[in-house]
Structures are given as structure tokens and as C-alpha cells.
């Protein structure tokens, strides 16, 4: 064994390196890692804590009850406010208005649902827009239709 001293030394060096690495690794591991599986449990709360952007119809109705009622009684009753208007968070924060509501009024918004194209279910109301109006421009649809209750009286 007296001639194996170098082997013992290099062996000891390897053991020291591995041990050092294992110890360093324990310190680098995040606190909640592995609590519920191979992941950092704290991430669950972090993701859940993000603030919602869309508020839903009820949130809009708090200030705009009249419009909400009109919509709920018309043929757009399944079309929630934030489809055509911007999401709540761009308009209200903590119950206080922070900016004007951006509303798209172009015919293109209406066309997304009601232009006749391949793919739409047959029973859904859709129009060949070139034939439906003289000139496709701006808010032309709103000349005849009220977007909150679009059915013609």
C-alpha cells in the first residue's frame, strides 16, 4: 500500500469535491422545492396572485346597469361586454376609473362574427357584406343596428 499514496490522495480529492458539491447544492435548492412534487411550491401562489384583466359582465354592470340590461334582453345577450369593449383593467382599477373605455366601432368588428365565410355553422346569422350594405366603411353597421340589441325593430 505504500506505493498507492498518490491513489489515496486523488481519491480523497475526488471525495472532497463531491461532498463540496453536494453541500453547495443543498444551499442552492429553493425552500419550497419538493413540498408537493418535483417543483417549487411557492410558484403556485405566485401564478395565482396575478391580477385578472377581464372583469366579466357583473363588474361592468356595477356602473353601466342600463347598458347591461339592454344587452341582456337583446339578441346579443351571450356577447359579453369585453368582446367589443376593452378589458376592464384598462378602464377601472380598484373601483376607480383610470382611463376612457376604448371601443371599436368599425364594421370589421361586426364582420368577425357576421361576415359570411366558410366554416361558420349554417344556422348562425351571417351576411354577404358586399350585398348587405352599399359601402363598407367605418361604423356603417351602427347606422341601422344598435350593438347592444342589434335586432331591427
Amino acid at each position: 500500500m505504500e506505493h498507492a499514496r498518490h491513489v489515496l490522495r486523488i481519491g480523497a480529492l475526488v471525495v472532497v469535491i463531491i461532498a463540496g458539491f453536494s453541500i453547495a447544492r443543498t444551499f442552492a435548492k429553493p425552500a419550497t422545492y419538493g413540498d408537493y412534487g418535483p417543483y417549487r411550491a411557492a410558484a403556485v401562489g405566485e401564478i395565482a396572485a396575478r391580477a385578472p384583466v377581464h372583469g366579466g359582465v357583473e363588474a361592468c354592470a356595477k356602473c353601466h346597469a342600463d347598458k347591461a340590461k339592454e344587452r341582456a334582453e337583446g339578441s346579443h345577450k351571450t356577447v359579453v361586454c369585453e368582446i367589443c369593449h376593452s378589458p376592464l383593467a384598462s378602464h377601472v382599477k380598484d373601483g376607480v376609473k383610470v382611463a376612457a373605455m376604448v371601443t371599436e366601432k368599425s364594421w370589421k368588428l361586426c364582420a368577425r362574427c357576421h361576415q359570411q365565410i366558410a366554416g361558420r355553422p349554417a344556422g348562425f346569422p351571417q351576411q354577404n357584406l358586399e350585398q348587405h350594405v352599399d359601402k363598407l366603411e367605418g361604423a356603417v353597421c351602427m347606422d341601422c343596428h344598435n350593438p347592444h340589441s342589434p335586432k331591427m325593430q
Partner: peptide
């Protein structure tokens, strides 16, 4: 939309689907 669902809301895509 985990951040919505944990607050009792629907995912945004479900919320807006007409």
C-alpha cells in the same frame, strides 16, 4: 387562467366566448 380560476372566475377564453 389559474389566476382567475383560483379567484372563482372563469378562464378568459370561456368568459368571452359568445
Amino acid at each position: 387562467c389559474y389566476h382567475r380560476v383560483t379567484k372563482g372566475m372563469k378562464p378568459a377564453c370561456v368568459e368571452v366566448c359568445p
